[in-house]
Design a protein around this nucleic acid. Structure first.
Lengths: 363, 363
DNA sequence: TTGAAAGCGCTAACAC
DNA sequence: GTGTTAGCGCTTTCAA
């Protein structure tokens, strides 16, 4: 292991001495140089360079009570997180935005209930300026445990999340679902089935709601509950074909599920899209493009969602711009058409991103 | 946005006062309670609970110069990171280990060259106790930029990485490859092809070396360079079939590549494994199990690699146990058979995990 | 505009 | 064993 560098790093004191100014002035320059005369600024800057000075973040935090760090909390036990690149894309978006604001990303992965306490303690411990939380499940107790830390959620939190006032970023799950199903209807399909996602996640519930918005009195037999996985999609498709051999279209809650459905349809000799049209959700490229036939799907911009979560949080922390302004300034605010059963009580600062229907070969 | 809690958090001072002891004693108890008489320990503990005291990490770091934080650096631009769950699994392993040691995980994602400077600055800034670096490419300049920060690499670093003494954790790429190819030979296959990974990564080079170890004078036409992707696997397989229609087995550098090969073989009507046997590498479950036929592959324990990287780093930081001891105590050290062209200069602290051949239907 | 001085909350010598 | 005390490196009044 390469040894720890042992030479003491230069302090502000050293910089000040070298520049021939007081520590206070040196500090001012390091922090932007407001109200310091030009020649002095110059000298301090040079001293900083020559000494290779880097501020000691711990000392700074001690007095400013800022950390320039944000926690990202991800409930991990769920296999889904690993099955698709969702996670990585979201993180990438978040990371980009934080980096642009000189903030660090502290990653908190949780495995189970006991970890929740740990995370809550950490957040309450004031080690970070704020938190970005992926609250995957309706019954997740975490939101209730978070106190006194500015937080933005990824995906609309479920009810028990105490979501009264929670700020979140989500895509228009409901609206996207509606668009997909309307498209199928426009294609002349009449027996349209839906394979749901895991219904303990709001995204699955919202997509189901969108389906129902269009298929107001859908045959209940055409709706089968699943879990967002490929295997689940296969099982659901088999059940569906057994129950309703006359179906002519399937709207799956995500691409993986759709891929499973596709496989079973092929197995059973149903031609796609001629006999059965299939639409997925997410537009996970490795899945949609490699599917056979390539999958028509509802795209959501996952990386942008991550970026937006971070932006919302940081703006809130700056207290410079209102969160509402942040949302619209992002250039991506949308009518919250799919956000749930009414906007009452939901602050305007949450953002629901629009989705787009991407046409490929499966529908 | 939920507002920041504004009530000042209790300090050690407050705890001490409430427990009727000095700040020093309170501090001792908070840090383990060594050398403090039981009744006092008890009183301090109670005070901590009653006040909900949480140590101020910034203040602590200021004096101890420890941060209880580790940076994880991932070079991100590469698409591969997103195409498979590698990334997430590795992080999960790291996270588990760090959590067990009360260390935080600071995630640094890099997009390009300019980000390297940023990362180097951050690491040099002494914000973390150490770094775990995924040095994906042979020519990555990052290792050279890292100074004075204990570092463990994920995967054997390439030459320009100044790997003279670098500590790394890797799987036995070369040995695993050898085992796979020997198995094919044992099956009676004689025209065994290899689709390589991206050869600017040591893992690809090592797997190729392993292939050559067994196929000492392989027909050069049976080796085709690829890039670890599914599409790359397809292209390579087509080329291979055109060049050597008589091939009877394929060892692919990873599962994704093998999946691409499988697809092309089916397309061309070659039966697997009867006519062509196929073996992959990694055992990425979603890929191997869903492949058609299910893929025989060389498994590496990715999560364990992450865990081990963290363990090695932390032990090094503790300076309690030598890194070498850490390696063998992990129960997973292996003869470094695949680690490269000789162990000279490689410190004993690097760990090379064994691989296992997992037999499914494709070979 | 600049400097002097007072802490931020904590740990670690060093006394007792 | 326990308390006293001196900083860790920085920002920020407050005077000058």
């Amino acid at each position: 292991m390469p040894e720890q560098s042992t030479e003491p790093r230069p302090t502000l004191e050293a910089v000040a001495a070298r520049a021939g100014v007081s520590r206070a002035t040196a500090s001012r320059v390091v922090n932007g140089g407001e109200g310091v005369r030009e020649p002095l600024v110059e000298r301090v800057r040079r001293a900083v360079d020559e000494l290779g000075y880097v501020p000691n973040q711990a000392a700074r935090s001690l007095v400013t009570r800022r950390h320039d760090a944000v926690a990202v909390v991800i409930a991990e036990p769920e296999t889904r997180v690993f099955a698709d690149p969702f996670f990585a894309l979201q993180l990438r978006g978040i990371s980009k935005e934080l980096t642009a604001h000189d903030s660090q990303l502290v990653l908190l992965l949780t495995e189970g209930r006991d970890d929740h306490a740990r995370v809550a303690r950490y957040l309450a411990g004031g080690h970070v300026d704020g938190a970005l939380v992926f609250s995957l499940h309706l019954d997740d107790p975490l939101p209730g445990l978070i106190n006194g830390v500015p937080t933005v959620y990824g995906g609309r939190p479920g009810w028990s999340g105490g979501s009264r006032g929670a700020v979140y970023v989500d895509c228009d799950n409901r609206g996207g679902a509606r668009e997909a199903v309307r498209y199928l209807v426009g294609l002349g399909r009449r027996r349209i089935a839906h394979i749901t996602g895991a219904l303990d996640q709001t995204s699955a519930v919202d997509r189901l709601d969108g389906f129902r918005d269009v298929m107001v009195d859908a045959d209940p037999a055409l709706i089968v509950e699943s879990d967002f996985t490929l295997g689940g999609g296969e099982r659901a498709m088999r059940e569906l074909l057994d129950r309703c051999p006359d179906l002519d279209a399937v709207f799956a809650a995500n691409d993986l599920t759709a891929a499973g459905a596709l496989r079973v349809l092929r197995e059973r000799g149903r031609r796609v899209p001629e006999e059965v049209a299939v639409i997925g959700f997410d537009d996970m490229l490795p899945v949609t493009e490699q599917a056979d036939p390539p999958l028509t799907t509802v795209r959501q911009d996952i990386e942008e969602m991550g970026r937006l979560m971070a932006r919302l949080l940081l703006r809130g922390l700056d207290r410079t711009v209102s969160a509402a302004a942040a949302a619209s300034a992002s250039g991506s605010s949308a009518p919250t058409g799919g956000a749930g059963e009414g906007l009452v009580g939901v602050p305007p600062s949450s953002v629901v991103l629009p989705t787009t229907l991407v046409l490929r070969a499966s529908a």
